[in-house]
């Protein structure tokens, strides 16, 4: 079962290494990880996607919390949340396929951000599932390179 954790931590050297060291040292799994500074530049927000049963995720949450530089850990996948990931995909775009590629990009509300005689670089944003879907569709045409940011996520605000 996938879980998306949002971790608030001190924006200091070595802190990320404490987090990743914890995961490797205890054999926990990291599917993706994305981190950057928050509004308060002394803090960073890290979004981490991991998988495991309830007991493992509970242990991960508690172990993260035990790190002195970690301020708050939320399993945001426990309630309503929005998640986004961005991918840059360089896909073959030759005479025979160019129109097809553009159609696909359009369907996925992507953007062409770099053009060369034989390829387009495409920017596409969405949930991890959506990114996977465009990759699957573009793959037969010929993907040359791919870079993904990993998921970032935010809990939805209360409805009232």
């Amino acid at each position: 079962m996938k879980h998306t954790l949002s971790v608030l931590l001190q924006n200091k050297p070595g802190v990320l290494s404490r987090v990743t060291g914890l995961f490797s040292g205890r054999g926990f799994n990291i599917e993706s990880l994305s981190v950057a500074e928050t509004l308060d530049s002394s803090l960073s927000c890290l979004t981490l996607v991991t998988s495991g049963n309830e007991a493992i995720v509970e242990q991960i949450t508690k172990q993260l919390h035990k790190l002195i530089d970690v301020i708050k850990v939320t399993d945001i996948s426990e309630s309503e949340y929005v998640e986004r990931e961005m991918a840059l995909i360089r896909v073959k775009a030759e005479n025979t396929t160019r129109a097809e590629v553009l159609r696909i990009i359009d369907i996925f509300r992507g953007k062409v951000v770099d053009v060369s005689p034989k390829a387009y670089a495409v920017e596409v944003t969405g949930t991890a599932t959506k990114i996977q879907a465009i990759i699957d569709i573009l793959r037969p045409i010929g993907i040359k390179e791919i870079v993904r940011t990993g998921t970032i996520a935010m809990a939805r605000a209360p409805k009232k």
Binding site: G14, S17, R18, G21, L22, G25, I68
Partner: peptide, 14 residues
């Protein structure tokens, strides 16, 4: 040494 002892200290500082 901060890197080396990260997993075997409660916390460490440079």
């Amino acid at each position: 040494i901060v890197g080396i002892t990260r997993p075997c200290t409660k916390h460490n500082y440079l």
